[in-house]
Design a protein around this nucleic acid. Sequence first.
DNA 1: ACGTTCAAGTGTTACGTATAACGCCTCCTT
DNA 2: AAGGAGGCGTTATACGTAACACTTGAACGT
Lengths: 337, 337
Amino acid sequence: MARGSTRPTSRDVAEAAGVSQAAVSLVLGDKWRGRVSAATAERVRDAAQELGYRPNLAARNLRLGRTRTVLLVVPALTTEFFAGVYTGAARVAAQHGFGVVLYPSPEGIGPARDPFGSAQAALDGVIASSMAADALTAIRGDQLPLVMLDSDPAGSQGAATVNLDIADGVRQITAHLLELGHRRFLHLAADIPSWTFEVRAREIASCLCEIPGTSLRVARAPISFEDALAAAQTALTAPGPRPTAVICDDDKLAAGAYKAARRLGLRIPEDISITGLDDLALARALDPELTTVRLDAERFGEQGMKALLAVLDGRTPPQEDIPVELVVRGSTAPPAP
Amino acid sequence: MARGSTRPTSRDVAEAAGVSQAAVSLVLGDKWRGRVSAATAERVRDAAQELGYRPNLAARNLRLGRTRTVLLVVPALTTEFFAGVYTGAARVAAQHGFGVVLYPSPEGIGPARDPFGSAQAALDGVIASSMAADALTAIRGDQLPLVMLDSDPAGSQGAATVNLDIADGVRQITAHLLELGHRRFLHLAADIPSWTFEVRAREIASCLCEIPGTSLRVARAPISFEDALAAAQTALTAPGPRPTAVICDDDKLAAGAYKAARRLGLRIPEDISITGLDDLALARALDPELTTVRLDAERFGEQGMKALLAVLDGRTPPQEDIPVELVVRGSTAPPAP
DNA sequence: ACGTTCAAGTGTTACGTATAACGCCTCCTT
DNA sequence: AAGGAGGCGTTATACGTAACACTTGAACGT
C-alpha cells in the first residue's frame, strides 16, 4: 500500500510555481485571459504536470454546487438493450464533461427504491427508464431535473420524456403480417406493467380491429426464455384454429416462441411466422433469422442525455419520438393456404 | 425548474431541532451512543425527516478524504457478460456502502485511455478487466488500489488479480469432445490480444498434444456474428480432412459457427460438434442448444469487488480462481464413423 | 468540602477549490 | 504632472461536513 504520500493539491502546485493558489486555479481553469501573464501560466502548468496534480473533485463539487454527474436508472443491465442505452448516454455526457452513474433497479422493470443511496455520487439530474410511479415521485421529491425514457408522456407529471416510436414499429410489424395474408394472430406479451408494453398491446389491437376477419389471442410471460417457451406452447395448443403468426413483445420472447413452435413440430416460417422487437444480436443468431423491429438503443440513450442537458440549461427539450425500423428476415412468410 | 430553494443542510436541521450542527452530525452518523440523549437524537432525526435533509456527498467526501466509490473498467458493456460483472460488483459494493461507476473502454477490449476524466467521480479504487499494459500503468501511476480481472497474474505488477478458471473450463470442453471420439479440431479463436484468450489457445493445444492422432486448426475472428461466420466457413472448407468439432472462444463466435455449418450443409451435432464459452442467454436460444462452459459473471464481479474491499482494508485478497462449469447440451455428439 | 467522573452537549477547525474583491505597478493620455 | 486604465496578481472567503477539544452541570465517593 504505497499511498502514504497524500495527493498534491493546488496549493502544492502554487508553491512549486511560486504563485498563489488562486493563480493556479485561474490558470488550470482556463480563466486567466487578462489576469495572469502567459509566462506565469506556463510555469503553473509545468508545475502541475511535474507534480502530477489532479484536482480534488469533491472539493470542486462542493465549491461549485454541482457535480456534472447524472444518474441513469435502468430496469436491468444484463441485456444488450439497456447496455446500449447507457453507452449512448455516456458518450453524449462525456462530450459535455458529464459522467453517468448507473442505478440498475434490482427488481427488474418496475419500482426502484432508493436510487440515491446506491450511487455515492451527488447528482445534477436523472434519466429514468420504464419506472413505476412511486419511484418517479421519490425522485421528483428531490427536485432533481428528470428525463423519463419510454414512459407515458401524459403521466410524467411534467418531466421531459424521450420515447422510441414503438407504436409505429408495432404498426409496421402488424401491417407486414397482414400484407403477407395472416389473419389469426398470437400476441406473446411481456408480463410487466410498463407503458412501453401497454403501447404494444394497444396498437396491435387497434390495427387488427380495422380489418374484418382477423382474430387475436394474447399470452403473457415474463421476459425469460423458459417462461416464453411455456406460454407460447400453451397458447399455440389451445382449442380453436391455431394462429399463423406470433407477434412477440421482444426478441427474447421470440426465441422462446421459436422453441415452442419446434416442439409442436411447426416449421418457421412455413407453418408459422414469428416476429420480435429490439433487434438484439440474438435476432440474427436464430435460425431462420428473426423478422423484428430495430430499436436504436444507443441513439435512445443519446437523446435522453441530450434532453437532460437541455433541461439543465433551462431550454425545453425536443419532444420527438425516435424512429424505429422494420427489419424483415426469414421468420415471416405467407401462411399456408 | 423549481430548484430555487436550496437544499437543507445539517445546519438547517440543527436549527430546527434546537441543537448544534455537531450534534446533528453525531446523530445522523450514528455515533451518539454516549454523547447525546436518546430524546435529543429523536428530535434531530425528526427534524431531518421533516426537512427532507440529505447530506451533501461532496462535502462529506471532501471532509473524509474518500468517496466510497470505485471504478469498474470494462471492455464493453453491450454484452451480457460484463453487464453481469457490473451487477455483481455493484451488489457487493452496495452492501458495504460503496458505489460503482463504469468506464467502458471505448476501443473495445484493449487499451483504455483516461479512465478518470470520463467519470466525474473521485475514486477510492479501480477494478479493471482485460486491459492492456499501458492503461494499467496509467492507473497505477495514480497509486489507486487496483484489482485486475482475468489478467495474467505474473504480469500484473503486484496488483491483485481475480480470475475465472478458464483453463479448467477449456480442459473440460476438450476432454468432453475427446471422450466423444473427436480427433480433428477447429479452434475458432477471438482475435483480441488478451490474456484470457491466450489461455484458451494454450490450454487447447496442450490438451491435444497429449493425445496422439489429433489435429488442430485455428481460425481467428473478432467477436462478431459476421466475422465469426466468415472465419468459420473459410476454416471448414480449407483443404484437408474437415474438423469434426469446433471449439469457440465464446458463445457469440459459436453462433457464427452454427450458421457457417448450416451454409455448408452440415448438421449439428451429427456432422459437426460445436462448443462455446460463457453460457449467455444465446446458448439456449440456438438450435440445438449449445454445449458450453458456464462463467458466473455476477460472481466474478462480486469476487472482484470483494478483493478490492480487502485491498482497501489493508488485507491481502484471496487468490483463488473462480470455478466454472461444463454444460453439455445438444450441440455435441460423437463424430460420424 | 472537595476532587473526580460522567453525560450531554457546543465551538471551532480543516478538507481543497473557485471566485469576488482588492492592491500595486507601469504606461498612456491630456 | 496628475489622473486613469490596464496588466498581473494576491487575499480572503464560502461551500457542508466530521471530528477534535472543550465546557457545563450534576452525581458520587471519601
